[in-house]
Design a binder for these strands. Structure first.
Length: 619
RNA sequence: UGGGGCGUAGCCAAGCGGUAAGGCAACGGGUUUUGGUCCCGUGAUGCGUAGGUUCGAAUCCUGCCGCCCCAGCCA
């Protein structure tokens, strides 16, 4: 359960509210649609929606799509779906979207021109009162059931262009004709001032004319830029006349061929925030040095409404995985994984397919907290959150992944008993089910050792073990493969007096083992997932090496011929189930067929024996 | 050598001048027909470091050390 911890950002929001600087809270989640969302984005989603939720505000989903060459609708669709999934049942009432096709409204505010685009809150699903809700300062509420879409920075290209013109008129921006190489050269170095553009002082009229012709498509890519006139000797390099607009004759996934000039992030972001009435613009630490520019742009214009405030927090890093979109893209493109939604990927879609509940991911984001120091969170915490969420609600079932045949010699041939099994010991309301038991069963290969190591409580020759919900059996003999010497079958006897529920006094058996009746078993494929990398920090690449070299080739293990109890034949893809003593699993959303399920292992159960065994191996 | 940040336990992180929260991990023990869950217990005379201010400092001041970010017409 998310606790809603206090942090320095919430503190700031509270202060702004208390001081009357703002009357409501509007945040935004502004991914660039050039990749799938990952667990690092989930942190930002939880932060921004969490703050909106806590203060009765809203959080706009916005595509930060100012670079046509890297973006694609595939990504806007996946991002939208992932955000909705992640906040479902928690903050959907805070999700700010807008009617499809709606653009900012130009209006007059106290004699000053203003652009504004109000969010429409998506309809709550549960109370039968759908429709939009007008937001503070918003325009007309729209009709019910109207199709909504995310905000797009590219929807603001026209107002942004107007703002740029205004900057030029104020003498705060100019068209520069230097080549990219010249601009680089003249920017100086962190410890050395830059050199002013020779076009810096051309007239307002000339810049205006040139900028209009840039828009009209008169010049080739990179021929000119619009630059802010700030200070070429500023110690902060982002204040050295940064580029505001560049020429790119490229079609855009959302605006098509309407534009051939595109605004840069720094120019577009703060103004997009402003247009949407964002109060708090929360981003990651690397943008901290951009903050003076963010503020300069807003202050350079004569904007009639309150300015958004940018603040920064540390991005999430996690052990045994990579988080950069560039690296994730490579894993996909080079086929190291099956796709963006490969269950081993740290993407939202990958984790969803693997069976991680949204609630668990939110709990994780809550527990890692938000602060400003660089961090490396252990993946074990995420796994803990998944287990904790699943334990009370995942029904239990028995599944044997690596089957070992057991023949119970004194059990009547052809006889079948329906044993009663509890669906979830954590929750009696989940009821019980019947599991068939017969003379030949399968147990896990791991649950039998011909030569048991110390502290091994499971089955071995002459030893007893309890079959969950059934009888105590004793191993009497083994059958070996004459060629390999491997044990291929266990012979055993059962004690009729030990039937589940009627355990005789004084009968102590050290271990209980799961099983599946051979005649009743459902065959299935099961996919086991481990960490994608063999090292804790795969992004920390040694000299001259590539991060893909530390990929773990055994991260996916596909098991076929697994034996499942009959109740598992028909399952809803994605629905969690605990295979007793093994872990949490869910039927794969793509591979499963009725009667022939494919299961993904979401996460293992904690395994005390594995730890003992590991220690024995070391000692 | 410029600017901006950050250093509290293996990891994350509270702390906001009154004597070091919490979670994960780890390690003991109890319960248990899941070696799961649950329950109980164990960790910083110490907060990067050296000084200073103060009755009192993780918190304030100064110096030093370490790590991260910034010189895309990417975001």
């Amino acid at each position: 359960m998310p606790q809603g911890h206090q942090d320095f950002l919430r503190e700031m929001v509270q202060e702004d509210l208390a001081a009357g600087r703002i009357s409501g809270v509007v945040t935004r989640f502004p991914p660039e649609p050039n990749g799938y969302l990952h667990i690092g984005h989930a942190k930002a989603v939880c932060l921004n929606f969490g703050i909106a939720r806590q203060f009765g505000g809203q959080c706009n989903l916005r595509m930060d799509d100012t670079n046509p060459t890297k973006e694609d609708v595939e990504y806007v669709d996946s991002i939208t779906a992932d955000v909705k999934w992640l906040i479902a049942g928690w903050a959907d009432h805070c999700l700010g979207m807008k009617p499809v096709g709606r653009l900012p409204e130009k209006r007059d505010l106290g004699g000053r021109e203003d652009y504004y685009l109000a969010p429409v809150m998506s309809a709550p699903d549960d109370d039968g009162a759908p429709g939009s809700r007008e937001s503070p300062g918003g325009s007309d509420a729209q009709g019910q059931g109207e199709a909504l879409e995310p905000f797009y920075a590219s929807d603001y290209f026209e107002p942004l262009y107007e703002y740029a013109l205004e900057l030029v008129r104020k003498g705060k921006a100019y068209v520069c004709d230097h080549t990219p190489a010249e601009v680089d050269e003249m920017r100086g170095a962190p410890h050395r001032p830059g050199q002013e553009s020779v076009y810096r002082d051309r007239t307002v009229a000339e810049s205006l004319d040139l900028f209009e012709r840039m828009r009209a498509g008169e010049f080739p890519d990179a021929a000119r830029t619009l630059r802010a006139r700030i200070d070429m000797s500023a110690p902060n390099v982002w204040l050295r006349d940064p580029v505001l607009y560049r020429i790119r004759h490229a079609s855009h996934h959302h605006t098509g061929d309407q534009w051939c000039i595109y605004p840069m992030y720094d120019f577009a972001h703060g103004l997009s925030d402003y247009i949407e009435g964002i109060t708090h613009s929360l981003c990651t630490l690397e943008f901290e040095v951009h903050r003076p520019l963010y503020e300069w742009i807003l202050e350079a214009l004569d904007l009639p409404r309150a300015h958004p405030r940018q603040r920064e927090f540390a991005r999430l890093n996690m052990t045994y995985t990579v988080m950069s979109k560039r690296k994730l893209l490579r894993l996909v493109q080079e086929g190291h994984v099956g796709g963006w939604d490969d269950p081993r990927m740290p993407t939202i879609s990958g984790m969803r397919r693997r069976g991680y509940p949204a609630e668990a991911i939110r709990d994780f984001c809550d527990r890692i907290r938000v602060a400003k120091s660089d961090n490396m969170v252990q993946v074990q915490l995420l796994e803990h959150c998944v287990r904790e969420d699943l334990n009370p609600r995942a029904p239990r079932a028995m599944a044997v992944l690596r089957p070992l045949r057991v023949v119970i010699e004194n059990y009547p041939e052809g006889h079948v008993e329906e044993m009663e099994a509890v669906n979830n010991p954590e929750d009696a309301t989940m009821g019980t089910r019947r599991v068939p038991f017969s003379r030949v069963i399968y147990i896990e290969q791991d649950d039998f050792r011909e030569v048991p190591p110390p502290k091994y409580f499971r089955l071995s020759p002459g030893k007893e073990v309890r079959l969950r919900y059934a009888y105590v059996i004793k191993c009497t003999d083994v059958v070996k493969d004459p060629a390999t010497g491997d044990v291929i079958e266990v012979r055993a006897t059962y004690d009729p007096a030990t039937r589940s529920g009627m355990n005789p006094e004084g009968r102590k058996v050290k271990a209980t083992v799961h099983w599946v009746s051979a005649d009743h078993a459902v065959e299935a494929e099961v996919r086991l997932y481990g960490p994608l990398f063999t090292v804790e920090e795969p992004e920390d690449v040694p000299e001259g090496q590539d991060f893909v070299q530390s990929l773990d080739q055994t991260s996916l293990e596909t098991l076929t011929g697994c034996k499942l109890e009959p109740s598992l034949a028909e399952v809803v893809p994605g629905a969690p189930v605990q295979f007793e003593r093994l872990g949490y699993f869910c039927a794969d959303s793509e591979g499963s067929r009725p009667g022939a399920p494919v299961f993904n292992r979401t996460v293992t159960l904690k395994d005390a024996w594995a730890r003992i065994e590991k220690k024995q191996g070391q000692g």
